[in-house]
Nucleic acid binder design. Structure first.
Lengths: 108, 108
DNA sequence: CGTATTGCTACGTTATTTGTAGCAACGGAA
DNA sequence: TTCCGTTGCTACAAATAACGTAGCAATACG
């Protein structure tokens, strides 16, 4: 079922500067994007399981984010179904893993 | 395959899960939130300067994010005016600073 | 006084997200 | 084969968030 993510060529806000960090901050600053990466951090999940993990977020947004994250090369759809992180995605996930510890101390 | 996602019953938006990481991911997953922290990483900026730095984002959202980030304790409004990171905010900023290097390698 | 900042808000338009329902395709069991 | 349950994914209208422009009161210069 490994299908190619369709290319919508959506203009990424903040990418006008040509600075990748802006595009990345914009991509990750969309709803559920960070959460999706977080939920996939340990193992691949089916779209349904991911939705459950993301607190029943609407499939519309999840699908949109998954497509964007796939186009970015962070997420992939495995042959046997189920979404998982690519090597790049796993690497990205690692970079904000310390956020977990920070959040624990933060509490709010 | 579909591993049963455990009992996550509530919306992240309300942060009723009791898990700080979810609240944090939600807060940072709002538009311009990450960008604001990023732009303040070196020095405080006035609201106008911040707006310029954030690619002329509308003051409505910026103000909303700044209020949220202030309530979270990441940003503060200095005596002489100008928004800056708190000690906590600086710490948070550090945790995703490696994102910069990652983005450079990513390029897309 | 006039002028130019500051942080901040009102408001109408547009874009995004939500929630619910449902699709076609595949697989296993009967 | 048919039935059932799953997969990834989409349609659609309503709700929400963001955008863009304008402008406010307060402060600080001159």
């Amino acid at each position: 079922m490994a299908k190619q993510a369709n290319s919508k060529t959506r203009s990424v806000r903040g990418s006008r500067t040509g600075r990748p960090i802006m595009a990345l901050l914009d991509l990750l600053g969309r709803r559920w994007a960070l959460r999706i990466l977080w939920e996939l951090r340990e193992e691949p999940l089916t779209s349904r399981a991911l939705r459950t993990a993301c607190d029943e977020a609407s499939p519309t947004v999840l699908q949109a984010r998954l497509t964007e994250l796939r186009e970015a090369g962070f997420v992939e759809l495995g042959d046997g179904g189920g979404y998982g992180l690519t090597a790049l995605g796993r690497e990205l996930c690692e970079t904000f893993m310390p956020l977990h510890r920070f959040a624990e101390r933060w509490k709010r």
